[in-house]
Design a protein around this nucleic acid. Structure first.
Length: 480
RNA sequence: CGGGGUGUAGCGCAGUUUGGUAGCGCGCUUGGUUCGGGACCAAGAGGCCGCGGGUUCAAGUCCCGCCACUCCGACCA
């Protein structure tokens, strides 16, 4: 009774303020999201972690299909010659691809790369199936895993193999392809903000940071609790560069052969790392309702006593019928242990039902984020719980937004930039657009450009690094 | 790929300085009492001390090599 909302009950978790990186790996392990495997850099997604991904997948997949996309399955392997068709692309990915050189006991005539991304495979296929403007647009997506031989890995944030979706589309005109690139960035941004309660900044990557082979890369950038940035979803416009490299042409309405214009866009299991680092606290994970494997956990109190368990079971059936993801925990662990356990797992709402509640035909509902208790009559559960979930989601968003605003600053001079770079956070400056200035910031302040936001602000007329006229506002930060 | 740290029961650790029977806490199993914020009592089970070599009568401990994890850089979703 009377537990303060910031009281830390789970001693095994390192405090966020003490060591954020340690806190992160503690959460990942204690909440049973994933486990290490014997393959370097590859992780086992455990049921609870995979269930989060399944929810993400279901929501995004539904949206993609509503927008006319179709799912396909491309091969796992890319022949070396195919990967090399687009010069910038191969240069970008070559350092981190895994190669297959043997088939059984035979040396392969041509080595095969395990896909790090599938642009080349989609292009090879598109060359076969696109002939006429009537074949366009092609709106394909695939859910798969890809492999990138990373030097150092961290659960969810960077693993050698990771799950993602990659959309690849082909369009008759640049305008249409650019519109698709922007539309899909909006899908990601809306998903992050509305479903995951993660505020994001939409913007464009600099040439230095854009995807290998792309003409333009759009990004959503989220800020983690420690002030570092996480690139949370990207959408690329390729122009017709790949189409030319892969000889993809179509006969247009005027019977002229033209190259189609291409996009690709992806979101990966990395976003789960983002959810953890955006919302989690010292008691564990805090999950947004949309992707929480369990939205409401029902904990019967003193359930050996008459009627408690039966009442809890009735509540479970009622809530399931109302479309909520519910778990009734009638194991014989003590209530206190269960409280901590489901807080660690980030379950949004806990519903306590005991002998005292039965007398009043009510139960106690506790929100994960602030531990606020609400007494809810059993007859009102199906209307009140969705309201409580929505209020909870809104609080998560507001709190993340507040953190981002508190950790965002503006620098008008290089000295200010250097000073502000001592902490973590976003720093807004103007920028002349020169690569040299971007590299200077990286070298001297240890920051990378996150994006040139679509929502531009005019901070001053000049680039604080070189003093030349500024072309755009840009955001800098330390990135995961 | 560079620099640091750590590998001993499922988890967290002690033991390594000075070589001499493998330990503690939590968890797990069984029985009982409990149950509105990580309960209590009793009895149990559980180890190739990261891997491979060496030194020694004897290695968790000393020497050499390797591997994994982890943190900080560089590279990247």
């Amino acid at each position: 009774m009377g537990t303060k909302k910031d009281e830390k009950l789970v001693q095994e978790i390192t405090s966020r303020e003490v060591d954020f990186a340690k806190w992160y790996t503690d959460i990942v392990k204690k909440a049973e999201l994933c486990d290490y495997s014997s393959v370097r850099g590859c992780m086992v997604l455990r049921p609870y972690g995979y269930a989060i991904w399944e929810n993400i997948q279901r929501i995004l997949d539904t949206t993609f299909k509503q927008l006319g996309h179709e799912n396909v399955m491309m091969p796992l392997f890319i022949p070396e010659s195919l990967l090399q068709r687009e010069k910038e692309h191969v240069e970008g990915f070559a350092p981190e691809v895994a190669w297959v050189t043997m088939g059984g006991s035979e040396q392969l005539a041509e080595r095969l790369c395990v896909r790090p991304t599938s642009e080349t495979l989609f292009c090879e296929h598109y060359a076969n199936v696109i002939h006429s403007y009537r074949d366009l647009p092609k709106l394909y997506n695939q859910w798969c895993s890809v492999v990138r031989w990373e030097k150092s890995t961290r659960p969810f944030l960077r693993t050698a193999e990771f799950l993602w979706q990659e959309g690849h589309t082909m369009h008759a005109t640049p305008e249409e392809a650019i519109a698709e690139t922007e539309r899909m960035l909006d899908v990601y941004a809306d998903f992050a903000e509305q479903q995951l309660a993660m505020p994001v900044i939409r913007g464009r990557k600099t040439d230095k940071e854009k995807f290998a082979g792309a003409e333009a890369t759009y990004t959503i950038e989220a800020m983690m609790h420690d002030g570092k940035a996480l690139q949370s979803g990207t959408s690329h416009y390729f122009g017709d560069g790949f189409a030319r490299a892969f000889d993809i042409t179509f006969a247009d309405r005027d019977n002229q052969l033209r190259h189609p214009h291409q996009t690709s866009w992806g979101m990966s299991t990395r976003i789960i790392g983002g959810i953890i680092m955006t919302h989690g606290d010292d008691n564990g994970l805090v999950l947004p309702p949309a992707v929480a494997p369990i939205q409401v956990v029902i904990l019967p109190i003193a359930f050996h006593k008459g009627g408690v368990l039966e009442a809890a079971q009735r509540v479970q059936e009622q809530l399931r019928a109302a479309g909520l993801r519910v778990k009734l925990d009638d194991s014989d662990a003590t209530p206190g242990w269960k409280f901590s356990e489901y807080e660690m797992k980030g379950v949004p709402l806990r519903l306590e039902i005991g002998p005292r509640d039965l007398e009043n035909e009510s139960c106690v509902v506790v929100s994960r984020d602030n531990r606020e208790k609400t007494v809810v009559p059993l007859s009102e559960l199906t209307t009140r719980l969705p309201e409580l979930l929505e209020a909870y989601r809104a609080r998560l968003y507001e709190s993340a937004l507040k953190n981002r605003e508190a950790r965002t600053s503006t620098a008008l001079t290089m000295a200010e930039l250097m000073e502000q770079a001592k902490g973590n956070g976003f720093i807004k400056t103007m920028w002349c657009g020169d690569l040299a200035c971007e590299e200077t910031v990286k070298e001297k302040a240890g920051l990378t450009s996150r994006c040139m936001p679509f929502a531009q602000e005019h901070l001053s007329d000049v680039c604080p690094i070189c003093g030349k006229p500024a072309k755009t506002m840009i955001i800098w930060g330390k990135a995961y």
